[in-house]
């Protein structure tokens, strides 16, 4: 009797949580659209001012595109939560793309070569580990559980 009551209440709360997740997914879609608009605006701006040839601008563009991929994955995750499939696979994808974005944005070869190498090695280590996680989920089909 008691456990049925808990079950009923928790399932009702689950429904509210689903509704909030829908709002969350909607917010992620808005973010995605805004980033696309920002990228297009900056592209136009850069082509006008000839900044487009700067390597830093290209790196920032790549990072922005990776950010788009991240937002897309986060959206997938929020939608996939409804069907309970391939959740961890998406989590590891987010980890890898996030680390790659960090490599692009946060590491630059500077005068402090030791610092640069340490930074790149750190992110490379994270990339290898999250890649291993992704491989395990993908190879052994745990994503289908």
């Amino acid at each position: 009797m008691g456990s049925e009551l808990y079950r009923d209440i928790s399932r009702k709360l689950d429904k509210y949580e689903n509704f909030l997740e829908l709002i969350f997914a909607g917010l992620l879609v808005i973010s995605f659209v805004m980033v696309v608009i920002a990228i297009i605006t900056d592209l136009l701006n850069f082509s006008n001012t000839a900044k487009f040839y700067s390597s830093r601008a290209v790196v920032v563009f790549m990072a922005s595109f990776l950010s788009l991929k991240l937002l897309g994955d986060a959206f997938n995750l929020s939608v996939i939560n409804f069907t309970e499939r391939k959740r961890m696979r998406t989590i590891f994808t987010i980890a890898m793309v996030g680390t790659m974005t960090n490599i692009l944005v946060n590491t630059r070869l500077s005068e402090n070569i030791f610092g640069s190498i340490t930074g790149i090695s750190t992110y490379a280590l994270f990339l290898i580990l999250t890649g291993t996680g992704f491989f395990i989920v993908d190879r052994y089909g745990f994503s289908d559980l």
Binding site: V35, V60, S64, L70, L71, A74
Partner: peptide, 21 residues
């Protein structure tokens, strides 16, 4: 919006939401 670091900040909040879920 154009700053990738800000977007990673959004992702941080999003992952926090997944943690709560």
């Amino acid at each position: 919006f154009y700053d990738p670091i800000s977007l990673i900040g959004i992702l941080e909040t999003a992952l926090l939401l997944f943690l709560i879920v």
